[in-house]
Amino acid sequence: MKISDIVALGLWPDSKKTTSQKGISELEDLGYNLFYIGKNADLYTCPGEDAKVLLVRSDRCSVFDIPLNLLIDGKGVSQTAISNNGAEFAKEAGIRTAILSEKVDQSLAIAPRCQLMELCKPLEAQIDGEVVQFELIYRNYLTGSLFDACQNGNDPYGLNLPSDLPQWSKFETPIFTPTTKGIKDEPLNSEKVRIKFPEIVTSLEKLFKDFTAFAEARGIIVVDTKFEIFVNSKGEWVLGDEVLTPESSRFISKEDFDAANYISMDKQLLRDFGKANNWKEKSKDLKPGEKLEVNVPQTIKDKILSGYTTILNRLSK
């Protein structure tokens, strides 16, 4: 399938610019053709007529949606393995994902970074008179932007949470805080989205609860997670490629959490370093396609990779 076929099917947004660059030679030689370069991963068309693409994770990094000239060796392999584990957990729970069970030739050097993906389009629906795409977020603990909102007397999701709840309060049952998906994610009324997609919201709530228990038994606290929903060619809803991974969730090792050390095992160290070095302000001068030049200490890179490795080791069945 060619990129023109993907566009014709209405499965590729105009906002995402394709590339004519050549990709990895061992893939191109087999008929996989690079067509999109993302911040952290690349997409290839696949030989044949099936509606699927090949996702190849890199070691590139980004934070705050800022592309960086930063590589962390081994991150892409770990991320792919964690993503495969998350997808398998969802499938065992009876939930479809866009990640196909089919694999590329495992003798390829690039194989540990590869996932074959079903071509899907984002789930869309009308909420309050506007057609939006969704990020369905579940939270076990009060922290981050929701804690700030509660402190300021705001109720962005219509949950009627007490304003005096302390940070890191654990909810008796996970709460549902959906947002739009776009340049800026806007909070949505929880009950309105639940009424719009009752089966999806309930199924993912159970998946989140089950995964929380599974992870905690293996030494990882799941603070929250975000699910992105797509629709396949059969009209079925499916999860995307980041299912229960550090890219879509906040994980904290149980030993750190119990010691009130709430640093998540993902890119939080990099975000904190970026805030301290004013990356958001510096990135405003970037031209399209440019990366922000950053100098990150090796100690931070090592800690980030160690976090991914720990997650992979603890969550592998």
Rank of each mutant, 00 (worst) to 15 (best):
K301I: 01
P178I: 05
L43V: 01
S83H: 06
Y44D: 01
F147G: 01
K170A: 14
Q79M: 14
F176K: 04
D59R: 04
F230H: 15
D148W: 00
K234D: 15
L305T: 03
G23Q: 08
D302Y: 06
K52R: 12
Y32V: 02
S253E: 09
G76E: 02
T143D: 05
L27N: 03
T180H: 07
K317M: 02
L34D: 04
G307K: 04
S283E: 11
D65Q: 10
D185F: 13
Q133S: 15
G307L: 06
L165M: 14
S249T: 12
D256W: 06
K291P: 03
G235A: 12
L119W: 00
I82H: 00
Y157P: 04
S169I: 04
L136S: 08
R96S: 11
L159C: 11
P297G: 10
N232F: 11
K103W: 00
T179V: 09
D302H: 09
P13F: 13
R57V: 00
I263D: 06
D224E: 11
V104I: 15
E172Q: 10
T143W: 04
F227G: 07
Q79W: 01
E281I: 12
Y36F: 11
N313F: 05
V77S: 01
L269M: 11
A213E: 15
F257A: 15
D50I: 07
P112L: 01
D185E: 12
K206W: 05
E186D: 13
F176I: 05
Y32C: 03
I82W: 00
S62F: 08
K267P: 09
G307T: 07
L11T: 02
L27E: 03
E26Y: 02
S62C: 08
Y32E: 03
